[in-house]
Design a protein around this nucleic acid. Structure first.
Lengths: 82, 82
DNA sequence: CTTTATTTGTCCGTATGTATG
DNA sequence: ACATACATACGGACAAATAAA
């Protein structure tokens, strides 16, 4: 069973920013622990957005050092600094 | 010898939808019986499309419960309900 | 047990066309 | 004109599961 998040997207802010916010919170709250594996396809399906949008999300989280992406594997949650 | 289906792709409908239609009919007609093994590569070759397109086809048929996919093995036709 | 081949899973980059704000 | 976003489609590379040699 796949998860579907029905977000109320704020039309004044890009979707990719809003989705990144959601995932960031999940990481910071511990809902997504270290090494939790994300995949573009799952994000695509959960939020109902296109691949290009998902890639902007992962690029942003990667830039923040929250996730690490490996070609052929996926993106996993990096160890949190506190 | 590999089969090559020269489909006249209707330019107004996605290739992956049209290919899924063809395979769905083969399953429903019994041409592809229960446990018949499909492979992405063969679909790719038969219809002359890219793998990404094939994966949309299998994803659709999987969502419909027509096939079951196993990593490292392939997709096989699920038991039909009647 | 090790190696190899096959197959699916995933990411990467690119491109085209459409639509909206 | 520009950024955002969707949908489609191509081709490539690497990772992981499975099965066979």
């Amino acid at each position: 069973m796949r998860t579907v998040t029905r977000m109320e997207f704020d039309p004044t802010r890009p979707k990719w920013v809003q989705i990144a916010d959601v995932i960031r919170k999940r990481i910071e709250s511990g809902e997504y622990p270290t090494h939790y594996l994300l995949s573009e396809v799952l994000i695509e399906q959960e939020f109902g957005v296109a691949r290009g949008t998902v890639r902007k999300v992962t690029a942003a989280l990667r830039d923040e050092g929250l996730i690490v992406t490996t070609h052929g594997m996926g993106s996993f949650v990096a160890k949190q600094e506190q």
